[in-house]
Each structure stands twice: as C-alpha cells, then as structure tokens.
C-alpha cells in the first residue's frame, strides 16, 4: 500500500512542477502578467513565513515571533544569511531552557 501512496504522491507533486516548463515555452505573457509572476517570490516568502512561524513551538507561539524578530534584525544589519539562520536557532534554543 505504502509504495502506491509514494508513487501517487510523486505524480501529483511532479505534474504541477513540470507543467510550467511547457507553458512558458508556448505562451507569451503580457507585461502585467510578467510583473505578477515576478512578484510571486516575495508573496510566497510572506505566505511561507506567517502564520507558519507561530508553530515553531506550537504551545508557545511567542517563541517563533521573537526568533523571527531576531532574524529580521540580523538580516537588516546585512549579515550573511547563515548568520541570520544560526541567530534564530540560538534564540529559540535559549528561550526553551
């Protein structure tokens, strides 16, 4: 049973990922659709960050919020993204004593 679930998941995950490779070769989008698509990364980042970050510690959502603010601060200081990640991990680690 598990093997069929895996194969089915692989197919329904792969098809939406692959289809756009065909679409962009055959369809020419107007300028405003190009702008829409260019904005997708920023919108995706927003939707991926919140409210998901609240569930870093589901029983204490403030921990995710504080770690996120630490990340924003470190990123605002132009620090390398590795430092941003390590800083956020360290802040969660310290808050869960």
């Amino acid at each position: 049973m598990i093997i069929w679930a895996i194969i089915g998941m692989a197919v329904v995950t792969a098809v939406p990922r692959i289809l756009p490779a065909f679409i962009v070769d055959y369809v020419h989008f107007p300028k405003w659709v190009d702008r829409w698509l260019n904005a997708i990364p920023y919108a995706a980042l927003g939707a991926l960050i919140f409210p998901g970050i609240l569930s870093v510690k589901p029983e204490a959502p403030q921990i995710g919020v504080i770690a996120g603010m630490v990340g924003i601060l470190l990123a605002w200081l132009n620090l390398n993204i590795i430092i941003v990640i390590i800083g956020a991990i360290a802040s969660v680690f310290l808050m869960t004593f």
Partner: peptide, 12 residues
C-alpha cells in the same frame, strides 16, 4: 526555526 529564518533572510 531554520527555514523560517532563511525565508526572512531572503525577504529582508
């Protein structure tokens, strides 16, 4: 929290 921090580090 690492992946959320990475998304923040990309957006800022």
């Amino acid at each position: 929290v690492a992946l959320y921090a990475m998304f923040i580090g990309l957006l800022i």
